[in-house]
Simulated scan of single mutants.
Amino acid sequence: MKLHYFALFTLIGFLNLNAQDYYFPGANTAWEQKSPKVFKIKDAPLKEAIEFAEANEYSGSRDLRIAILKGFEKEPFHQILGPTKKRGGPAGLILKNGYIVALWGETKRVDMTFSVTKSFLSTIAGLAEDAGLLLNTNDRVGDYIWDDTFKGAHNSKITWEHLLQQNSAWSGELWGGKDWADRPPSEGDRDDWKLATPKEPGTVMEYNDVRVNVLAYSLTHLWRKPMPMVLKEKIMDKIGASSTWRWYGYDHAWTEIDGLQMKSVTGGGHSGAGIFISAEDMARFGLLFLNNGKWKNDQLISSSWIKKATTPSTPNPNYGYMWWLNKKGDRHWEGLSENIYYAAGFGGNFIVIDKENDLVVVTRWLEPNKIGEFMTKVNAALK
């Protein structure tokens, strides 16, 4: 019996020694790099992938004010409402087991990140659930936010999950933005669309920044503090992020809570604002998710939340809680793991989490329709 126990403990020890351990870079220190060969990653295909990213720069203007106005020119009443910033060129890095095995461009440069911000906003909701502020994502938001935002027969049905999955069909106006004016149909009579009855919450995904900003507004009131402060205290400081990132709202997006004026931030940048951040800080955020919400020995966000956030929604199998999922569907990257999930933003900003290969891939200003091909090239270097 003693020998049996000894063998069992020896086996457990062996398994623990061989369990996957990630490297986590310290704050204000150089991120350790390792040769791809250490991980049996092939140099030539990896170099080809990086050259592909550098050669396929997003075609829009580097003056993002111009790129935004051009990209959303079909939206009625569209205008710049928050800060913008001229961008750099293609940049990115690839992490294997937490180590940098490839990087290109200005990885410390702070740039707008557009809808990658949504995945950070989703994380704020996860932190609220972990803290017990949000009891259940299936709860109606109007039970927490008692002002007029969720009044009425339609809006009162909306749950936190509906907002997180972008299928709420919230109807109204926030910060001067009308829900029906965000990303109008390219064909047909827009007046008919504007006057149409809102779809039943939970039935149809509609990518809509006004409704995302309603989520940001609701989370601000739930936390009773500005979202950048929550993100900084709960996540970014603890993962050793730099002090250079910023999270903006529209210039006039102020709300009063407990007698204090607070800025309600945006979940994207298609009217300006959103998160401005470096590729390296994006990679730290990605590494946290690669390790199921744990940074070194500190569980910053629960693995149960990450599982919920990366579960396909009913209307769209490629979308969870503001993370894109590589499931079979319209946005599937053929030949790559269906367990890959990623944050994506206007202009070709991506944070890709590939748990099966212990990879985090950050790429910036890549022509958006080239991301699948780029990831296929990265994957080829692993084989």
Rank of each mutant, 00 (worst) to 15 (best):
G88M: 05
P368V: 13
L219M: 10
S59W: 15
Q33L: 04
R190W: 15
V361T: 11
T123I: 07
K232E: 12
Q20W: 15
T197C: 12
D130F: 00
E334W: 07
W193E: 11
V361P: 05
L64V: 04
A53M: 09
S168E: 13
A344Q: 12
Q166A: 06
F289C: 00
K108G: 10
T113R: 07
N97A: 07
P45R: 04
K85L: 08
D179E: 12
R190L: 13
A7H: 09
I68V: 06
T197R: 15
R246S: 07
S218C: 09
D258M: 02
A273Q: 10
L135M: 12
F9A: 03
G172K: 02
E373W: 02
T376Q: 14
G272D: 15
V361L: 08
I340F: 15
G272W: 15
Y248H: 04
G259T: 00
G249S: 08
G347T: 01
H252Y: 12
E106V: 03
V378K: 03
I124G: 09
E73N: 07
A196S: 09
S115Y: 14
I158V: 07
K225R: 13
S168Q: 13
I145E: 13
K42R: 04
P90Y: 13
N155T: 08
K34P: 02
L81R: 15
Y22P: 01
V230K: 03
W31I: 01
G329R: 09
W31N: 02
S171Q: 13
